[in-house]
Amino acid sequence: MDGRNFDLKEEIRDYWSRRSRTFDLAFGHRIPAGPEADAWQRPIRDLLGPAPKRVLELACGTGEVTRLIHDLGHDVTALDFSEAMLAVARAKHAGKTRLRFLLADAENTLEPDQSYDAIICRHLVWTLTRPEETFREWFRLLRPGGRLLVFDGDWATPKFTGRAAGLLISLIDRIIGPDTNYDGAMSERHAAIMNALPFGAGLRPATIEPLLASAGFRDIALHSHEPIARAQRRNANLRNRLRTFVYRRFILTCRRS
C-alpha cells in the first residue's frame, strides 16, 4: 500500500473489521428479502441485463449485495480488505458456485486487465484515499463496454429537510436510548476517518463525474435512490424511517468505451 496513506487505510480496515460483528444488525446494511431486496436489485438487473456476466463487487462487506448479484445468475468475485468482513460473507454464502471471495484492496486489486464485464460497489467511493488513481484502476479492470455501478451518498452534510429528521432521531435517542448497532456519520471514530479522506467534506456526483470522465468512463448517468429508500421505510421503525431522509444518496452508472 501507498505509505502516505498507510495509517489511514489501517484505521479504515480496523474500523470496518470491528463493525463486522454487528454490521448486519444495523439499519441500512442488511438487505432483507422482499421489497427492499427487489429495490436494490433493480438497478443491478438494469445494468447487467439477463445474460450471465463476470462481475467484480468491491467492498463486499458481509455479502449482502453479493447475494443480489449472484441470485441474478452472474459469476461474482466479491472483494474486501477486511478479513473479518469476508469471514462473515463466506459463512453466509458457503457452498455456492460461481462465487469467489478475494482479500484485496479496492484501490489496487492486482486483478488482470480487462477481466470483468461489470464492477459494482455500495458505500465505497466516499472512503477512497486516492480516487483519481482508483477510478483508473477500475477502468483497467473492465472489458470494453464494461459497466460501473456505484451506490453512495453525501454522508457529511444532511439535506436541508434532513436536519429536522436528524433532530428527531436525536430526540428519540434521548428518550429510549441510542441504537447500539448503528454507527452513523457523526460517531467520533467515523467522523475522524471522514475528516482525513478526500471526500470527507461530502461525496457529490458533481465532484466525481469529472474524475470518472478523466479516467476514461463515458455515458455517466445518475439514477434516483428514492425507490430503495421507500422500500426501506416499509417495515422500519420511526427512527429508521427518519434515517432515510437525512442524507442525499444516489446511484451512478457509467461504462468503459
Rank of each mutant, 00 (worst) to 15 (best):
V246E: 00
G184C: 10
D173G: 09
V76S: 05
A118G: 08
T161D: 12
S82C: 09
A221F: 06
R243L: 01
V55Q: 02
A185V: 06
F217P: 01
R100Q: 13
P144A: 08
R45F: 03
A206S: 10
W155I: 12
R98W: 01
R248N: 13
F151M: 02
L203F: 07
L167S: 06
G200L: 09
F139R: 10
T244P: 06
R19W: 12
A106M: 03
D7F: 09
V88R: 12
L238E: 10
G3F: 14
A231Y: 02
A84D: 14
D71F: 01
S257F: 11
K92N: 05
I175C: 07
L102H: 07
T244E: 00
C121T: 14
G153I: 11
R140S: 03
R130S: 13
D154S: 11
H123S: 15
I176M: 12
P178V: 08
D2G: 00
G73C: 09
L167C: 06
G63D: 03
C254P: 03
T62A: 14
G95H: 07
H74Y: 02
S115H: 08
L99S: 08
R163V: 11
P43S: 13
A201C: 11
I208V: 13
D117Q: 12
E64I: 00
S214Y: 04
L203M: 04
L79A: 08
D80I: 02
L141G: 05
A201G: 15
G61A: 12
D2L: 04
W126T: 09
H123D: 15
K53V: 06
I251V: 12
D14I: 13
A213G: 07
F81K: 03
F139I: 08
L197R: 04
A59V: 11
L25K: 15
I69R: 02
E83Q: 07
R130I: 08
T66L: 03
L110T: 14
R130Q: 15
L148F: 11
N108S: 11
E137W: 01
I120C: 01
W155D: 00
S224I: 06
F139Q: 08
G61S: 04
G153E: 09
K92S: 09
S170T: 06
L47C: 15
H123Q: 13
R218G: 04
I69C: 01
G200R: 07
G95Y: 08
I69F: 00
Q41L: 03
L124M: 13
L212Y: 10
E57I: 00
D80R: 09
T109E: 07
F101H: 01
F101Y: 10
K9P: 12
R163K: 13
R241F: 01
P131I: 10
L128T: 11
I193L: 14
A231N: 02
A26E: 08
G61I: 09
D154G: 09
T77Q: 04
F151L: 06
H74N: 02
N108Q: 15
E111H: 14
V65N: 00
K9R: 14
R174W: 09
M194H: 15
L128I: 11
G73R: 04
R147I: 05
L25A: 15
T207K: 13
I119N: 06
P144Q: 01
L72Y: 05
S20M: 10
G202F: 01
P50A: 11
H29Q: 14
A231H: 01
